[in-house]
């Protein structure tokens, strides 16, 4: 893998992805995490523009699962934006781009539209390089790094000694067929004909079969949906209801009551969505915050109150107990 500048590890979180997308200049979409593959969950998220299936393989390198798909990769075709994965940490952003750049109904913004045009004729490996060399994409991606002065130079602490493998695969319909876009594959995989209504169900089947194939408990899965911006969606729906209310005849009280109820429900959903967005923004602010001065000052205050020394002793005891328990568990396993 080549190193085109530094790409930091970012958290796989709908709030991070949503702000990342709008940071690239894209308008009118957001990301939602999907907790269950049942139909009613999918129904609530409609319209879904694309799905991102991601998993983290925790294990020694060399024993990673063979990435076999349910179909055969096609040679990259002109009408599909398909990029090979060049940099490990960029893969989330790359999966998001796979959806954004393959839909004609998303407002990309000037810079990303230029990028799409510029790279249109590139082969998959060059597209991957172009992503990793794009100042816009890299700087937005890296803005979600924690700003601790040291964090970018080291690995994620949760990764431990064996480097975890993150893998992201995008699913979306392109010109009447469901496609699986996996940066580690040779090309886009056509999973068969679909309609705008049937593709989500078909994609879920493909995801389920992948999950079954891996099966191992060491795999952590998650699924994200790229959807229309829900704040805009609810606002549009409220305007529609308002229009209907205006055109109602005076005596249509029953109908008026029904529409009023609809309007209240939409208002409630809109409010919840706004609160969620504010929460996401706050979480992102905290993610980007450098906490070292805060931590140092808390510790210094404890030292001034003569509480730090005994705390060091307690923490040492805890660490020793933890190590002993770990050793015991390890011995039991063998």
């Amino acid at each position: 893998m080549s190193e085109a500048g530094n790409w930091c590890l970012i958290e796989s979180d709908p709030g991070v992805f949503t702000e990342l997308i709008s940071g690239m200049g894209v308008r009118g979409v957001q990301v939602e995490e999907i907790w269950s593959l049942d139909e009613s969950t999918m129904e609530q998220l409609k319209p879904i523009l694309g799905l991102i299936f991601l998993f983290k393989w925790q294990g020694a390198s060399g024993s990673e699962p063979t990435v076999t798909s349910t179909g055969q990769p096609e040679a990259a075709t002109d009408h599909i934006f398909f990029a090979n994965q060049v940099i490990q940490n960029a893969c989330a952003t790359q999966a998001i781009l796979s959806i954004l750049l393959n839909r004609d109904d998303i407002e990309l913004g000037q810079e990303l539209r230029n990028f799409k045009e510029f790279t249109g004729d590139f082969p998959p490996d060059m597209k991957g390089l172009a992503i990793s060399n794009s100042d816009l994409i890299r700087s937005v991606h890296n803005s979600f790094a924690r700003s601790d002065p040291f964090v970018n130079e080291m690995q994620d602490p949760r990764a431990g000694k064996d480097e975890d493998l993150f893998h992201f695969i995008a699913y979306l319909p392109i010109h009447g067929a469901l496609y699986e876009l996996d940066g580690l594959s040779k090309g886009p995989v056509n999973l068969g004909a679909c309609t705008d209504d049937s593709w989500v169900g078909k994609a879920n089947e493909a995801i389920m079969s992948r999950m079954e194939k891996y099966g191992a408990s060491e795999l952590h899965f998650s699924l994200m949906a790229l959807t229309k911006d829900r704040i805009e969606l609810y606002q549009e729906q409220m305007e529609e209801v308002d229009g209907m209310l205006l055109s109602l005849p005076e005596d249509a009280t029953e109908e008026r009551r029904r529409l009023d109820d609809d309007r209240n429900l939409l208002g409630h959903k809109l409010q919840l969505e706004k609160e969620k967005r504010a929460r996401w923004h706050r979480e992102n602010t905290l993610r980007k915050h450098n906490f070292v001065p805060m931590i140092y000052n808390l510790l210094r205050t404890l030292a001034e109150r003569k509480e730090l020394d005994p705390l060091i002793t307690t923490a040492k005891e805890k660490a020793t107990t933890r190590a002993a328990e770990k050793a015991k568990k390890k011995a039991e396993k063998q």
Binding site: R146, D148, P149, F150, V151, E153, M154, P157, R158, E283, L286, R287, H289, F291, V292, M294, I295, L298
Partner: peptide, 27 residues
């Protein structure tokens, strides 16, 4: 609220890890 956030917890873990890696001289 900030000190009780999961992000603060994460920062504690990250700093602990960095200190153990022994590369924090300038900081």
């Amino acid at each position: 609220q900030v000190v009780q956030s999961p992000q603060f917890q994460q920062a504690l873990a990250t700093l602990s890890f960095a200190l153990e890696s022994g590369e924090l001289g300038p900081l």
